[in-house]
Computed example of a mutant assay.
Amino acid sequence: MARLEGIPSRIAVGYAPGRLTGATVTVAGQGDLPEYEVDARDAHAWPELYFQGLGWVPFEPTPSRGVVPSYATGASAPTAPGNLDNGPDLLPGATAAPTASATETAEPVPGVDAGAGTSGQPGPGPWPAGVGAVLAILLLAAAPRMVRLGIRGHRIRQAAAGSPGSGWRELVDLGRDYGLPPEASETPRAYSSRFRGSLLAGADGPDRQAYSTVQVLTAEFERHEYGPPAAPAASGSVQAPQKAVPEDGVIDEVTGRIDALAAALRANATPGQRLRAEWLPPSVTARLGRWLSAPFRAAGRAAASLLGLPRYPA
């Protein structure tokens, strides 16, 4: 503000007088002097303004310091009118005299960032890095759940568009997530029967909607995989175009079936199984394990081929 009014100004940095310890120190040529204790809490800064004929005049605008303290007065010894220490470019045509600095460089103050600006503003504290680390951990923990929900939503849209294999794959993944994976030698019908047997009281129990959903998805998958191929359209006949985007009502219907199936599995699972299925679904973690191990499997096959070793199926 002083510079806006054309008054040269600078900031002096030093220490307050501190506290008397009650002891004395003998200084050659000055005799016994009282001893003061000064630490980082006494670090202080104050402005000084330059006036022609007076030199640099200290001011003390800090609250609770209504008068200029003795240490500020001592730091501003009378100077020649032409002495513009630390500000030779503030007055036109003025030249700086080679004098000692108003204050000596102080030791770094504990707890104050060394990269802080000269205005005394503290640098950024450690809390942004801490918040970022917490957010990264939460995002990493929620990643399997978000991936699983994304896969389910994609399959629901595919099933609503007429892809029977999508609904069946979602059924199998739900079984894996809740501890009911298919056996390697199990047919879809056998797995469907075991799946329905895990639900409460069968077709007439509280899980009857989930029970019927398993039946419908199994029948659609078997018809698609093992049924006769669709008859080709007769020559000259016009086939109705298939809908590329399913209607909202069909999506809601398929979503209701899958949600009922997931709710039935959740109701019949233990707390540990529910926690694992929601936050660490095996259907996602198993895929992640296969993706991560794929380079090692490929390297092993390449090494076996180079060495002429027998190859076994993975």
Rank of each mutant, 00 (worst) to 15 (best):
A262I: 04
E253F: 10
V214P: 05
K243C: 03
Y226I: 09
N268I: 05
E222L: 08
A234S: 11
R266K: 04
A263R: 03
P246K: 04
L199A: 09
W279A: 02
H224C: 06
T255F: 00
V214H: 07
Y211L: 12
D248N: 11
E222Q: 07
S237I: 01
Q239K: 12
S198L: 04
S198P: 03
G236W: 04
V284L: 00
E220I: 00
Q273L: 04
A210F: 10
P229H: 07
A277L: 02
E253W: 06
Q273G: 08
A262C: 05
G197I: 03
P246R: 10
G249V: 10
P271D: 11
V216N: 13
G227R: 05
A240C: 07
A263S: 09
E222V: 07
G272W: 05
F221R: 03
T255N: 10
A233N: 05
A201Q: 15
E220A: 14
E222F: 06
G256Q: 12
G197A: 10
E220R: 14
Y211M: 13
E222M: 02
R257E: 03
V214G: 07
G202H: 10
Q273F: 04
G256I: 08
V245Q: 14
R257V: 04
P232N: 09
A231D: 08
G249I: 12
R257M: 05
S198W: 11
H224Y: 09
I258V: 15
L275A: 05
V216L: 15
A210H: 13
T270K: 03
L265C: 02
V216Q: 14
A267R: 14
L280Q: 06
E247N: 12
L265P: 00
E222D: 09
A201I: 08
P229K: 11
S235R: 08
T255L: 12
A286G: 13
A210S: 14
T218G: 02
A269Q: 03
V250G: 06
V214I: 12
G205V: 10
A244F: 10
A210P: 08
R208N: 15
L217W: 13
E253P: 00
G249N: 13
R287F: 09
W279S: 01
E220S: 10
R257G: 01
R208D: 14
P206D: 15
G236L: 01
A240E: 15
A201M: 14
T270F: 04
P206L: 14
G202Y: 08
G236N: 00
H224F: 12
P229A: 13
V250P: 01
E247Q: 07
I258F: 05
D207A: 13
A260C: 10
G227W: 06
A264E: 00
P241T: 14
E247V: 07
S198Y: 11
R266M: 01
G256E: 12
A240I: 09
L199W: 05
Q273T: 11
A203M: 03
S212N: 13
G256V: 12
V254D: 04
G256M: 09
G272Q: 11
P228T: 06
G249A: 14
P228M: 05
L217H: 09
